[in-house]
Design a protein around this nucleic acid. Structure first.
Lengths: 138, 138
DNA sequence: CCCCATTAGAGAATGATTCTCTTTTGATAT
DNA sequence: ATATCAAAAGAGAATCATTCTCTAATGGGG
């Protein structure tokens, strides 16, 4: 249960290792779903039936500050979360709520080269995220 | 005041022309700001001091359904709005709330060509939106 | 094993957005 | 022009995700 990897991440980031934090991080890293706060609470409550939303939000905020996870914007304003691994892009399904990570080294290089040549006036680029909108085939 | 262009857009989309709708659309198309619902209400109230939020939200929903405008995602979950003109991308400032449209035909072509060659398994692309995160120089 | 800063718990508060119900109004046909 | 009526606006309550506040519990260094 006590996931070594998860505990390592917490200690490396100077976050006290608590059962709740371990549970939240396990859920986010386990699910490839980009869960919302509600999704996370639902999962945690399978093991800790009384965890309040406030606690989970606080944990998520702590993780975001340490850049262990990041927020994922959605069209409808509900915040979802993603464990940051390598830089990646997102596939958004128009119909369902499905969001999927999209890794593509070539694409990253392509963009990087493109903006190396073509500067944007008065703007310093730090990162780019491509949202690929479309439909998953069944 | 009664903006011909705005009225034309409304009638073309089978939306009844009301002063409130004209005002909302004028604001969104006038401001290049990607205003939030609150911003829009503030502006409208200069002329119609009593417009309720509910009305503006209903108008915005109607416009979105007709694809006259679109939602813009933000990091903090507050929805902002953008009049859809040509396909474009967004510059997000890390520090301020500033969001700016970024037009780049070459970039569109680059992406289009890239994904023409490199198909994503089980996914049909409809559109891509690049979020360029960084900082505006002062 | 003690201490205490940090974290979790509990629940109220907030604030953006949505919903419901009533009144008004734009646009079509008379 | 006027009547008509579906659609839209007004008003305000309701909802729901998120944040805040305050108190109790606890992880981990000494």
């Amino acid at each position: 249960m006590a996931d070594k990897e998860v505990i390592k991440i917490l200690t490396e980031n100077n976050l006290k290792v608590t059962p709740q934090r371990v549970a939240v991080l396990e859920v986010i890293m386990g699910l490839e779903n980009h869960p919302s706060a509600e999704n996370i609470v639902d999962y945690i409550r399978l093991n800790f039936p009384h965890v309040p939303f406030g606690t989970v939000y606080k944990i998520l905020d702590a993780f975001i500050e340490k850049e262990i996870i990041q927020r994922v914007k959605t069209e409808n304003g509900i915040i979802r979360y993603d464990s940051v691994k390598k830089p990646h892009h997102h596939l958004y399904c128009e119909d369902s709520e499905r969001i999927e990570d999209f890794y593509d080294e070539d694409l990253n290089k392509l963009l990087e080269n493109y903006f190396k040549k073509k500067k944007i006036p008065n703007f310093t680029i730090k990162d780019y995220k491509l949202q690929i909108v479309g439909k998953f085939k069944v």
